[in-house]
Design a protein around this nucleic acid. Sequence first.
RNA 1: GCCGGAGUGGCGGAAUAGGCAGACGCGCCGGACUCAAAAUCCGGUCCCUGGAAACAGGGGUGUGGGUUCGAUUCCCUCCUCCGGCACCA
Length: 827
Amino acid sequence: MQEHYRFEQVELKWQKLWEEQQAFRVTEDDPRPKFYLLEMYPYPSGRIHMGHVRNYSIGDVISRFKTRRGFNVLHPIGWDALGMPAENAAIKSHIHPRTWTLDNIAHMKAQLQRLGLSYDWSREVNTCLPEYYRWNQWLFLKMFERGLAYRRKSWVNWCPQCLTVLANEQDQGDICWRCDASVEQKKMEHWFLKITDYAEELLSGHSRLEKWPEHVILMQKNWIGRSSGSYIVFPVPALRTGVEVFTTRVDTIYGATFLVLSPEHPLIGGVLADPKTGPDFRKWVEQAAHESHLRRDPAQVVKEGRDTGLQAVNPFTGLKIPIWVANYVLLEYGTGAIMAVPAHDQRDYDFARQYGLPIKTVIVPEGEAAERPEGQAFEDYGRLVDSGPFTGQTSAQAIEAMNRYAEEKKIGRGSIIYRLRDWGISRQRYWGTPIPIIHCPSCGVVGVPYDQLPVEIPADVPLTGTEGSPLEKVESFVRTVCPKCGGPARRETDTMDTFFDSSWYFFRYTSPHEEKLPFARRPADYWLPVDLYIGGVEHAILHLIYARFFTKVIRDLGLTSIDEPFPRYLAQGMVTKDGAAMSKSRGNVVDPDEIVGRYGADALRLFILFASPPDKEFAWNEDGLEGCSRFFNRLWQLVYDSREVFRPGSGGRRPEAKEADPSGLRRKMHQTIKKVTGDIEQRFHLNTAISSIMEFSNSLRREREALKADEAGRTLLRQALETVLLLLAPFAPHLCEELWQETGHSVPLARTAWPAYDPDWAAEETVTIVVQVNGKLRDRFDVPAGTGEAELRQTALSLDKVRAAVGAGKVRQVVCIPDKLVNIVAR
RNA sequence: GCCGGAGUGGCGGAAUAGGCAGACGCGCCGGACUCAAAAUCCGGUCCCUGGAAACAGGGGUGUGGGUUCGAUUCCCUCCUCCGGCACCA
């Protein structure tokens, strides 16, 4: 055994061995219970960053831990390899996106392997290969057949200079990132997936996700945004039509003093078409509609509007009210028109004050009139006033009664609406899955026949980032024949949002080489659902909702029987630096290679897990990395200095006798196993698991020499050292595997069971009771665990310090918590 | 703006169901070893007051309030920072 730890030599040795033996390969014919552990796969941006290191280190600890707990653990990895950065690189550096992506993958794969991660590399998945994305197309066609994929017009960010669609990311404050032209809105035909068909199930499915963090469920609920409300039609006599509004507060309708339409509302189109409309009004509306409707910083949007001159009739009051158009009403939500109730909606209130529109109070607080502040709308529910026959009802009663009334009078109805919108998947980009559709002049929109899949991404396409969709310009791609009539036709040139790929990749890992279907039924049934999904909390809404949606669609296609893909989700906190997420574009990336070179993979892994609990954000700061590497050196030294106890014949095993623990080390050993097991399994608090291993190993260092004195001590020392290695191995697999071998074990540590603890030994024998007087700590005393209340009370009251603190006061109450504390309340 | 989260020593963090605030690690200070330095080892380290010290007293978990015998933990207010906001992945 070497006297000092040489991390590089040791790490490379074990990595080579793991690769040669395909040590983490798993199959479905295994008697052990299955466990599917998944981390979010990376986008191959070029290099691994610390967020990846953190994500995959957490996963690796759990994977290795679960394996040693007796599970058949599927732990796969792959590449989310289609997307904009590859295309940007191509435009900038004239490297083909495919070359750029594959090179990045090769580099990042080597980086992951250098971290010693326990992946089953035989299942590696790469979404930019036709073997993968053909199944995107297959799934798309299935959805198309069922009406779940459909086409309609939708707004996009458009750069009039580059003549191209901009992603939100490329729209920098309404200015194109490339040419600084001001961004416009343009309507285009787009493909959508009908996720709204599943809104209700996506909501109700949350009840099965008890093991998800509550705040993630809450965010998803709010995202889906189910609300019950009412559609009410306000007649517009002058035009012999009506404006339908949506409101969640029909109880305030007697206070509706005007209507507000979004600039894109069809009625406004009619106003603009009227030659009598003045140029100022026309100009204002055009500009408001032109402004980014995707803009989401209303703090910077000053509420602005114009009177259309039209009037509507409030169907409840019968009174005429003006119709306005304003930039704070969205076309996407509800009907693109609202009834404004300034007394009970702050936005309407602000707007009414600004333009001198009437404000009428129709709701008052229940009970004793709580003063409401001046200059604000009263938005709570309450009791109706000034509301005709509904006066005196509570908001809840009125909503029900008014909906009934509206239905009887055929002026409206109660309804459930969702904030969730259908998912637009069309992208006018090159490096994405071509949407497998053919446009035929006579047959219309036709799906590409399944036997013609995949529709491959054409290899040679000039990429300029300007002048529209790249595929549009490739005549050989676009020109085709209609599969129905055989006549000349054109291919769809939109590609898919890459979220499509990541919505089902976890199915593919279960049979990555399947050639007839996206995945084979039997292995999918064996492995799914994913028992634990780990990944950044920034994906808590979009990716996770899309993946849940796909799972339900796949189930309805009859390909799986699971309803939820991820019954348990660990939302990992971001790794930030300089106050922001690490990203290449911000240039605040720390390169793991450099750290691995200096301290080794084990040290980096241990450090990033020790620095902060997995679900918390971690501001990168490498003070402390040194400490992890020192801990390894001390551990190596400790084992080296104790090597005599591992010699054959030394420290023979003996039954553990309860009384024979003079050092207290045996108790500490069992307590440490219990603590580390619980921290990993129940809480994922890997940082405290590590600190208790450190504490135990520190005790060992203190007691080492004394233990060596007799046979029983040597046995204990050996067991204790083995325990440290067994517990630390998921975190520092290379070091522990090496020490395990050096201490004479022929079976690799990775194939050795996780240690068990004896609950009797792990239980505390004596406990410290804290004594407080009026909540202030005054003294403490030790008693055997389980000592009764009467005795605790008596002992506490007899303490000198307690007497002094109570002084002349009278003891009023004594609060006694067994094994914890006594609090004496005195005055 | 809306939705969600976080705020504890010089720093990362600990306190698992409301019960000893600061575990573990870093840094710093002192000591040992050394000609010296590095490495290593030993000890100390929340703040204030008193004390040579042991120790004693007081304060303390972003702000202000509340509930409670008792609050880092629960509730309300405000402040700051982070994430998401549907075409970044």
